[in-house]
Design a protein around this nucleic acid. Structure first.
Lengths: 161, 161
DNA sequence: ACAGAGTATGATATACTATAGCGAGGCCGG
DNA sequence: CCGGCCTCGCTATAGTATATCATACTCTGT
């Protein structure tokens, strides 16, 4: 993994710390919720964060195998499903990929800005978007249970160049 | 919205007419754009509309085969790709499924309300949602190229019962 | 410490979704 | 009529996800 990372070109970005923070937060959240943050789940979450952009389930699987661990698709899908239920990971539907949640711990409806050039996916939580969606759904008598909002395009850094 | 509309099981809905209208419109749009609206493409579009809710590519394939036609996955994927390029069909990312466009002919960014109970997907074009998305993206220096907005939940008819 | 319930993981098989690549035939402009 | 392009048939394969059963772990109450 690139030690430098720095997703969107902005300044520096201590990737190791960022991953470690995410893991620490995850552990705490699971503790609070009485969920087991097992070694496997931790490793999967770590791999998702290390990628620092949406990563496919099978890419996670390959990395697990590279650890020397025995793993099969259900191994990773179960871990990802758990992490999504707890709110530590999001699934990007338009990419069939997964990414670490930027703001775990709080229920939230997020939106994603997916750059076609660099592959990063920035997580947003725009109240305005959320309100507009709620209003639009309400107009049609629709009760929202789940939201998928994914914009593809060019991110700030990539459009500069 | 179409004059008849009203999917969701309530009251009447002249399905045959609705499909025929969609096909007629499609033929005209392809003519205008100098695209070939072949028999296969027409049949695929017809099948998509007949389903009247998002339908998977392989379900379309089965129906094509039921016609006695020889068909393989590429057959249907090529047709669907064409129909999407022309704007006659949308893909629902969260379902890996396809649905006829309710307002073909005009460029538009649409949103979908997908009922988990009855499986229908209502197509919206909310300017407010669109504006909110554009604003949120703009705040982050992001240039939008494609939008995926899919809300899952319970539609009006299903929440009544 | 132990038994039992519930949960997590291992392992195999299979289902579902999508694309690559090649060749034959049709359509259309020159 | 011919040459290029588009459409379609066909086979193979890639990519994504789940069903199912077996094993092993963890926690709780005793």
């Amino acid at each position: 993994m690139s030690p430098n990372a720095n997703h969107n070109g902005s300044a520096h970005h201590d990737h190791g710390k960022c991953v470690a923070d995410a893991l620490a937060a995850a552990r705490e959240i699971c503790d609070q919720r009485g969920e087991r943050f097992t070694e496997l789940r931790g490793r999967v979450l770590e791999l998702v964060w290390e990628s620092h952009r949406p990563i496919g389930a099978y890419a996670v699987l390959e990395r697990l195998k590279a650890d020397g661990r025995s793993a099969a698709p259900p191994t990773v899908y179960r871990a990802l499903d758990f992490l999504m239920e707890v709110g530590l990971v999001h699934r990007i539907e338009s990419l069939n990929a997964y990414i670490g949640c930027a703001h775990p711990g709080a229920a939230h409806a997020s939106q994603f800005l997916i750059c076609k050039d660099c592959g990063t996916a920035e997580e947003l939580e725009s109240p305005a978007v959320d309100a507009a969606l709620a209003a639009a759904a309400g107009d049609h008598g629709f009760k929202i249970a789940g939201r998928v909002v994914e914009l593809s395009g060019t991110c700030k850094n990539c459009s500069g160049s």
